[in-house]
Design a protein around this nucleic acid. Structure first.
Lengths: 235, 235
DNA sequence: AATTTTCTTGACACATTCTTGAGACTCAGC
DNA sequence: GCTGAGTCTCAAGAATGTGTCAAGAAAATT
């Protein structure tokens, strides 16, 4: 757009995730003049670099050796709204839909034109002027770090089951707000699953046993009778 | 993403801009079940409909008879951030770059897969999720926050039962206006339930005990004899 | 294949909330 | 003052919601 008058002294940061070194080198050459480039050759490194270097946008290959790109996207969306552009050889409709629905912002098929990529990067950066999610929740002695996927009580790591963590993550994302049973069940077990409020209660109970000082008088996970649960807002 | 907790009662509105009637019909068929569809066959109409109908997203063909799609995009960006997805037969790099830099959010080449289009629509809509409206009612020392589902008296949290909260929520929604017994009963207990005015009175009584300074001389929940109840408007 | 962990289900105790009925109160109009 | 319709409050049983335990099924890990 013509209106963009800002001159960027410190260039925007781009994380390139691809297991093939030539492609990383190619992208570094193509984009390096304009952006600061970070590289990762697998999903694990990518998630790590996201935390340490906080890039402004991610170019992500799907075919990584360890974690699949779609899964990487999903993990990122647990705590950040950073724009993610998928760059993949896979051209099938299902792949695109899966990646976009996992939270990717755009999907480009290899081989691609550098100019188009750069235009799509500009477009993606444009509409992401949104405030970031708070990725660390802290209340008293309880610290929940969504980026590290880790929960600490008195600096002590708390081991949660995947389901327990999911519930807690949703609660943190909407900290302070009431989430109905239905909303939580939908968010954790997906849309198809219906009406298992009991399961939710059991998990909340287990969760409380692990993160509450006194599970009988919960200070963090508050019951809203007849409605759902709420994570006490940061005090 | 599973985390999307919003439940849309009124469907999102999609504006389809294409000069070929078959394509408009095709898109209406494909998307009509999920979205409300508006159509325009040229750029002038499109810009007009944008103002009158305020759609949530625009699917825009480039080859329009009057104004070029890129120009339409540029005009839109002068006053709105509505997501624009270009759908065009043009596959050249320059066209894509021009459209994206004019402010389009995505670019899809005809022929395209419907599933991919729908996934890209979902992705585009995700970007501009509207921030929630904080609906707060305040009257003197009574504060009712519908978003947080929280009622405070003197900054002190008031615990309400689900039914009590429901009644109060309806009253707040129509603050200042008289709601008949029948309207309240219908809103709280649903359509089938009939004629239990006594139940309503008991709940109003309990509600007053919790949120009124002097339940005998209510200042917030006013009785309109023979008609119903009314929440005193913000003073 | 064996082991561990996690998920899911059912049973039960406990707490809260809903609903109902009885009675008291208010305020017109007679 | 009396009557009656409408309103308010209280209290108790019924109904529903919630938390916990434990055991079998399923899944992941070894």
């Amino acid at each position: 757009m013509e209106n963009d008058l800002t001159v960027n002294d410190n260039p925007l940061r781009v994380l390139v995730v691809d297991d093939e070194r030539p492609i990383r080198r190619f992208l570094r050459t193509a984009l390096g003049g304009q952006y600061t480039i970070f590289e990762a050759e697998n999903g694990k490194d990518a998630l790590q670099i996201m935390i340490t270097s906080r890039p402004d946008i991610v170019l992500l290959d799907l075919g990584l050796p360890d974690i699949d790109g779609v899964e990487v996207t999903r993990r990122l969306r647990e705590w950040t709204l950073v724009p993610v552009i998928i760059i993949s050889v896979r051209d099938r409709e299902e792949d695109k839909v899966a990646a976009l629905d996992a939270g990717a912002d755009d999907y480009l098929t290899k081989p691609f034109s550098v100019n188009e990529l750069m235009a799509r990067i500009r477009a993606a950066l444009r509409h992401c002027a949104k405030p970031e999610i708070e990725s660390v929740y802290q209340s008293g002695d309880l610290v929940i770090n969504l980026a590290l996927r880790e929960v600490r009580l008195h600096d002590q790591l708390v081991m949660l089951t995947p389901t327990e963590y999911d519930i807690l993550r949703v609660l943190v994302t909407y900290a302070g707000k009431v989430l109905t049973h239905h909303q939580l069940i939908h968010a954790v077990w997906g849309g198809g699953n219906e009406a298992n409020a009991h399961l939710l209660r059991v998990n909340i109970s287990n969760l409380r046993r692990k993160i509450e000082q006194d599970p009988l008088r919960p200070r963090h996970i508050i019951t809203e009778p007849g409605v759902g649960y709420r994570l006490r807002d940061i005090e």
